[in-house]
Design a protein around this nucleic acid. Structure first.
Lengths: 243, 243
DNA sequence: GCGACCTCTGAGCCGGCTCTGAGCCGCACC
DNA sequence: GGTGCGGCTCAGAGCCGGCTCAGAGGTCGC
């Protein structure tokens, strides 16, 4: 789905390395798959000890780390990781109701976290942001900007403009648009959008996607040449409006 | 039946390898036949355990996997397959009403699924898409574009143009044209088209094919040199119009 | 505790798509 | 030239996919 040029790479041109640490096999599988699909080099570990061992051998650029592990606390794993690789980026996975004060200290150090249940698109975007800000990749700071035609989306500032006009979007609308923009000129099925934008435990059907597409159209396309197109029986595409 | 140049091959030039996993012998037979017709190297397995065993020996590039297997769940099979071959592509087969649960998130990982009853052309197209995007073949990313004369069909964007003019097609028209273009300069019988474009449980006769050919002609050939030709008693061919 | 916003469900509507049937045309073989 | 078959096209019925609206429930901030 990504064109090769869009793959985030390290300074030396090899794919970014990510270690996924989670003890739930299904979740680990889905996350691993999504990151691999980004073109990254991914390995998985199911416990804290395995994570430390794997990190030593694999030397990842980033670690996706579940805070609730069977054997040890995530924060102690962080200390172990940092002891050997001070510059590794860490993205924590945490339950919503879990204490946030422990985490807030972390984010000050440049790391980030997402709360369960999360969406895969969000996870990938956060990870990309971490890596980019850590200067670990070939992308420049300005590459937080997605551009399709006269439509611009700034992933860092969470800002969207069309033809220079600022457009206010809700969180879900923003994620949906980001997803469409990252795959511009390419039909995405409702299921794909559901899998990327909505959290993995979402029980509902693809109807929500239609609904949010209609919201987006109102905010982005209304009164202008449409950019969001329906492909009946297939899904939706975002394309620059022809002049 | 394909011209050799059209056969999708791995990087080393050997045919793509596909493992078909389904416990219904009839369906497995049909699918296996269709994939062999593409020039691919196909093997079959009738259970999850057999699939994992076969995959170990056969080392397929892609797996067509029925989600409803007698012995095990589809997602757990996926895990087992990925554990040994992290980059194998998986196309799930699933009943229409059984979608939604159990396989959420898989399209975000680059895998895909088709719902029963499906058409063989659809199955093949999805599989080709998976393999192409996984970079497992000689084709480049740009090869989502089919070109015959001044007629172009972009499988990713679901876009068709003739002489630069955008042509709007319904889902069935699109599939039919894709099928004709993939077998350009080659007579396809109405039965073949029926088998490829319509789902395998379609009850009607070949008359629909005539009907849809006439729709296509109106949209593609009208006012220009015709590209779709009738071969009386044999079927239809798509050829570049002579200048 | 209240209000604003966001998210999702359900229902209804509309349009277009798909397929059936019938009639017509023309080629081909008597 | 007649007849029959294969193919083409039109018209219409039914259905399905997608869009929108209205409203319930939840969350967050004040």
């Amino acid at each position: 789905m990504n064109t090769p040029s869009a793959v985030l790479t390290r300074a030396d041109g090899t794919p970014v390395r990510v270690l996924v640490v989670d003890d739930e096999p299904d979740l680990a599988e889905v996350v691993t798959g999504a990151l691999r699909y980004e073109g990254w080099d991914v390995r998985a570990a199911a416990s804290a000890d395995a994570a430390v061992r794997e990190a030593r051998a694999f030397r990842p650029d980033a670690v996706v780390l579940d805070i609730m592990l069977p054997d040890r606390d995530g924060l102690s794993v962080l200390r172990d990781l940092r002891a050997e690789q001070p510059h590794v980026c860490v993205l924590f996975l945490t339950a919503r109701d879990a204490v946030e004060d422990r985490i807030t200290g972390i984010t000050a150090g440049g790391d980030d976290y997402v709360t369960k249940p999360f969406s895969l698109g969000e996870l990938v975007a956060r990870l990309r942001g971490l890596l980019r800000r850590a200067g670990m990749t070939r992308e420049r700071a300005t590459d937080s900007l997605l551009v399709v035609g006269d439509l611009e989306l700034d992933e860092d500032a969470h800002e969207v403009t069309r033809g220079g006009d600022l457009i206010d979007l809700s969180p879900t609308e923003f994620q949906l648009l980001r997803c469409l923009m990252r795959h511009a000129r390419q039909v995405l099925s409702k299921t794909q959008l559901l899998d990327l934008v909505w959290s993995y435990d979402f029980g509902g059907g693809a109807h929500v996607v239609e609904l949010y597409i209609s919201y987006l159209r109102k905010k982005i396309d209304s009164g202008r040449a449409p950019m969001i197109h329906t492909v009946r029986g297939a899904g939706y595409v975002l394309k620059p409006a022809p002049q």
